[in-house]
């Protein structure tokens, strides 16, 4: 067992992990942060996306030991300080960008990473960026809308529906 220490959602945490413990397991099982979901075993679905030192990372693809000393942010840390939904979360609710909710944490975390790098993405840029996040419920239409709305772009003008 190895002791790891990291900052998760602004709070210092530590724990003893095996060498094989994934960051997703450490967050879910040791820290009880079950908002980070595991939907596949092959780094394909993106339900487990978190931010490690500001970069979007699939937490099922990183060892907990590799995140030692890092600053990790998860879906549980995304709301505003007063508990209200942040801009991206609110846009997902306003535009019905989620149904069963299982892929949603990864979608929100990926969206946040996208908008940090590209504050006004085109529809195609949003779709391309989400290539690593699978949603089975929404057909992506409303997720794309939500992300563009969160970026301050005029969404209703985009397409008939």
């Amino acid at each position: 067992m190895t002791k790891v220490t990291m900052t998760v959602n602004g709070k210092a945490v530590s724990g003893d992990v095996e060498g094989r413990t994934l960051l997703s397991s450490f967050l879910r099982e040791d820290q009880g942060l079950t908002g980070t979901h595991v939907g596949c075993d092959t780094s394909q679905c993106g339900a487990c996306v978190v931010h490690v030192d500001g970069a979007a990372v699939k937490a099922c693809t990183m060892l907990a030991a590799e995140a030692d000393g890092a600053e990790v942010n998860t879906i549980e840390g995304q709301a505003n300080a007063d508990g209200s939904l942040n801009v991206i979360q609110q846009a997902f609710q306003d535009h019905h960008g989620l149904q069963c909710g299982f892929c949603t944490p990864g979608m929100v975390m990926s969206a946040a990473a996208l908008l940090k790098d590209n504050p006004k993405p085109s529809e195609q840029e949003v779709r391309d960026y989400l290539e690593g996040n699978i949603c089975r419920c929404t057909g992506y239409h409303n997720i794309v809308k939500a992300i563009m709305a969160a970026s301050g772009q005029d969404v209703p003008a985009m397409a008939a529906e």
Partner: peptide
Amino acid sequence: TVRREDVRFLTGTGEYTDDIV
């Protein structure tokens, strides 16, 4: 009407079977 259930899903506080300990 926007969905009330969204708030827990968007904040990582939904409770799926594997989340239960």
